[in-house]
């Protein structure tokens, strides 16, 4: 099997330094260290387990800034075989429409049985790109997977899709696009061997021109990148601080009484 995993470098949540650039209100990617988006790591882990079980290899596809290879190496160290990065100056400030079109165009040049994507990213958090990519490529779309069971011989994949009441078992022919969730299992840590091996793995860097047609299909307007963005950030500010914390250090019964009184005061109970 060949599985493509969509990955995005995002600011490290733990760094606490995320901010927008004051001039153009775009994410200041220089202000924080980048990591592989956590939900994408679940997708990658699932892909690696599937290729370990069924044979084949995992390739990464990303649209990101020029420094992305540094972050993609971490995903290669986990076990992906190679990567494709679409990076180009005009793509800065891309919205989800652009990202969807560029990733779809990049996938048109790839062979795969499955595309795996994370449920959303920790920076923008939109979670709409995977459905859009599947739509543009007319791939079966299987979202919010808690389990992925491919049957390469039959050319089919089964997915347990988390539903409000449990899960639905979906079945589709491959190639298909599957949205991974954390329920698929913990991402592995790269081994030292993996880290060494990642250094010599190929990341194929492509410009916008290299990926070809990024039109949105019939009737949709062309154009990608910051200049074509359908959305614009007007402003950003830190949220108002929460009120000071009231600390209760009484014995359990008295503490409980005070909490219940507080909840009643706030009309929560």
């Amino acid at each position: 099997m060949r599985i493509v995993v969509l990955v995005k470098p995002v600011p490290d949540t733990a760094s606490g330094g995320e901010r927008l650039r004051p001039d153009d209100k775009r994410l200041d990617r220089a202000a924080t260290p980048a990591v592989v988006n956590a939900n994408d790591e679940y997708a990658l882990e699932a892909a690696l387990k599937l290729t370990e079980a069924h044979g084949g290899e995992v390739a990464l596809v990303s649209m990101a800034g020029a420094t992305a290879p540094e972050t993609m190496r971490k995903a290669l160290a986990m076990g992906a075989a190679s990567g494709t990065l679409v990076t180009d100056e005009p793509l800065g400030g891309s919205d989800t429409v652009s990202t969807t079109r560029v990733l779809a165009a990049a996938l048109r040049g790839q062979e795969y049985d499955l595309v795996l994507a994370g449920a959303d990213t920790s920076d923008g958090g939109a979670g709409v790109v995977p459905a859009g990519v599947a739509t543009l490529l007319a791939l079966p779309y299987l979202s919010y997977a808690a389990k992925i069971e491919p049957d390469p011989a039959a050319g089919k994949v089964r997915v347990h899709r988390i539903s409000p009441t449990g899960y639905d078992v979906l079945e589709a022919p491959m190639p298909a696009l599957v949205v991974a969730t954390q329920a698929l299992g913990e991402p592995r840590y790269p081994s030292l061997k993996g880290i060494m091996a990642a250094r010599s793995k190929t990341i194929d860097t492509k410009s916008l021109a290299d990926v070809g047609d990024v039109g949105g299909g019939d009737g949709a307007p062309d154009g990608v990148g910051g200049a074509a963005a359908t959305t614009a950030v007007l402003g950003a500010e830190a949220p108002p601080p929460r009120a000071a914390t009231r600390v209760i250090r009484e014995p359990a019964d008295e503490a409980a009484r005070q909490v219940v009184a507080f909840l009643a005061e706030r009309r929560i109970i």
């Binding site: 429409v97 923008g124 859009g132 739509t135 959305t231």
Partner: peptide, 10 residues
């Protein structure tokens, strides 16, 4: 969004 080209604010 993919079919219409409309943007999404999420």
């Amino acid at each position: 969004s993919a079919l219409t080209g409309w943007g999404v604010l999420v």
